[in-house]
Simulated scan of single mutants.
Amino acid sequence: MSASGLGQPPRVEATVPRRYELVLPPGWVRIPLREGTKEALEKVLFTHMGQVPEGIPRDAAMRFRLDMRRRLEKQARAARRNGGLDLYLPVLPRGGIFLMASFIVAEMPIGQDRSVPPQAVIAQLADEGVPGGTAAMVEVAGEPALRRDYASAVDEEQQGSASGDVQPAALPTRRVDYVIPVAGDSGRWISITFSTPGDGDIDSEFTDVLVELFDAVVGTFKWSYE
């Protein structure tokens, strides 16, 4: 299980959660973005990633890990600038290759009056839809949330993956966003954003399986008040 704290407002009521929790699939790890990022990256690269993808010579393993560190640090910086709390990555290869996927948990400003019920905000966002995709109201941790599923071009900060390959700028990714109100604290929200190029076809069965895996992870989301 992965757990991460939330940034707290000046006055914290007892009914406001202090953190969230997720159950991760085997081989996935959490990279905290507010503190401890460097140490977490070191652990990922030199402890978890004991293997390197097929086709990389043994004497090139260190160079591979250093290149991976540079790419992951770049991805972590970009996520932190966008309010990121945690970055989640697969670090164990499947069939000799690393999955090209990740998701980020971030605080997000909705810009809505705190007097507006979260369900009304979610309904409005769902009605607005998303270009080239779908948006729908769902339930996360027993409360209403928004789920968006769409295609997106890879930007420069997101290029590169756990496979060590740089993706062409034109390669689209499959993205799934969950927008979740912080329980008991109207006006505060978090997002959980998943991104993957899949197997190169964002509508393939393989890519759908990765999306289903992410949806299953979000299904384990819960608030912790400890």
Score class of each variant (00 low, 15 high):
G142L: 02
L125V: 02
Y88I: 12
S4Q: 03
V209S: 07
G36A: 07
E42P: 01
E13P: 09
M108H: 07
L89H: 12
V179F: 12
V179Q: 12
P117V: 05
A183G: 09
A14K: 07
G50T: 01
G55V: 10
G219T: 07
V217C: 13
G96E: 11
A151M: 01
V209T: 06
M100L: 03
Q112K: 11
L41V: 01
G111S: 14
V217P: 15
V91R: 10
K43G: 05
T47E: 10
R71Q: 09
P172D: 09
I56A: 08
A3P: 09
P10S: 04
I31T: 06
L87A: 02
L41A: 00
F221Q: 07
A101C: 05
P25T: 00
R114P: 13
R63S: 13
R69F: 03
D215G: 10
D203P: 15
G111A: 15
M108S: 15
L125R: 08
D67Q: 15
V154R: 10
P168F: 03
F46G: 01
G164E: 03
Y225V: 04
P25Y: 02
G96C: 12
A151H: 01
D165V: 10
V105T: 14
I122H: 14
L45F: 00
G164Y: 01
E139L: 03
G7E: 05
Q159F: 07
L85Q: 11
A76G: 00
